[in-house]
Nucleic acid binder design. Sequence first.
DNA 1: GCCGTTTTCGGCCCGACTGTTTTCAGTCG
Length: 575
Amino acid sequence: MAVHNRDIAEIFNEIADILDIEGENRFRIRSYRNAARTVSELSGSVSEMVEGGEDLSELPGIGKDLAGKIREIVETGSLQQLEKLRKETSPELRDLMSIGFLGPKRVKQLHEELGINTPKELEEAARQGKVREIKGFGKKTEQKILRDVEKIKDGARERRFLWSEMEEYAEPLVAYLKEIEDIEKTTVAGSYRRRKETVGDLDILVTCEDSAPVMERFTTYDEVQEVISKGATRSSVRLRSGIQVDLRVVADQSYGAAMHYFTGSKAHNVAVRRIGQKNKLKINEYGVFRGKKRVAGATEEEVYEQVGLPYIEPELRENRGEIEAAREGKLPELVRLEDIRGDLQMHTTASDGKFSIREMAEAAKELGYGYLAITDHSKRVTMAKGLDAKRLGEQIREIEKLNETIKGIRILASCEVDILADGSLDLEDEILDELDLVICSVHYNTNLPEKKQTERIIRAMDNPHFNIMAHPTGRLLGSREPYAFDLERVMKAARERGCFLEINADPERLDLSDVHCKMAKEMGLKIPISTDAHSTGGLDHMHLGVAQARRGWLTAEDVLNTRSWGELKKLLKRS
DNA sequence: GCCGTTTTCGGCCCGACTGTTTTCAGTCG
């Protein structure tokens, strides 16, 4: 059984939690958490690195000791140290930490003084009024515990929202806050600004002189269900949707420092501050300070300048090499929405789309594109009225006619052809030969063993008509895991054959992920960004795909459809 | 447990809010 990066990260996180409750040295605990993060965000497989004899201590945050532990996990599937810890302690206490404001110290207290191990026992004790008797706990804490235990039972676990879902909450709230006269700037920071594909909560930054009216307006917003905290510079609320929103108010002269601080990521901030520290600078949300003297703070550019770095785009701030790249002047100039010149995947009424070819073409023209590819499903996808060779032939003829009447944009004849279980394509070569390009995807037999799935896809790429693999991993954010296959091998195969893997800009897919984009880039594989629109409105999702590409370090050069159709055609041509 | 342009020891990012206390620990971001 292969050990995945996630398994290793989970073991380290569990060790960290147990040590935390045990009251171990907090820096040692941090080391385990850092290592968990490093491993889980790595694009390649740690197991394969171990098998390939690579030196794991080269990885950031992983030294000789943890490298040895990773090797043990890969080779045996478990870690002696964790098994021992589980025996010596009460590992179920971990669950208690998932209750809001209960951290390791309080969990330990509850365990030692009341013998509490589970949320159920905690509820009992709180109901009987035993919790308030512990030193440091009180009536309010006891009530909060009862409320939170209830929430856990309701299954109302904190969830992450799609970026596009979050936008629907963020924009109206920002507009609402901006109605206050004295407000100078209002910006959503946090992972929303970094354009992470899913966002856990909203961090809003406001600059103004007097914070009181802002806090008042914020905490009385009509979607607020609960005010978690309310202070002079910071307040937190929970909306009815379950989203937590944190609002920070600072003076305008601190805007840049505060933006930097609240945009994160945490790991990026820590790294930047560490550089500051070495240069005798203190960096906080109010500015950059040398002793007591503020030397920067109004803009983010200033903050970076003080630590000797150029401005780093929010999408890159994950401490995944951007600081080193910045230091060496090797930051990529990220692709922008304006660079996109065409859309290479969409559906029409011929299969499961809502609009005609003409309507899609006119909408694409409105967006300023030079071309669009019509990629209805092939016949295997019966549910979506997939096209057979005859109907596709008719569509090709229709497109030819439309191209004569609609000026200023070129409609490309294409198809989203299913990759069948044996790796053959769902349509015959004769008809594929008539298309401008061919998109291929897996919709069925998604649970083949990893090796078979990988070979199936690569076999499909052996067909010289295969140009682009659509939604390559098949994942749906929050609801479906990627199917099991070796993406790295598929990428290598694509590069060898002149095929490509797309970023699907559908809000639920965003497939490839940021990490996979970077992996492709490092392999020298260019990537198209397509919307997979099923309506004219769906074409607007392009910005989501571009954001994903930016998070994956892609430049306009790295993205296929930043080119004219003439140039693109040459790149698609397989020898 | 990691790490090094103060390099093999002695550090490890920084501040706000809450609840319970009476000066601060715990937790969070």
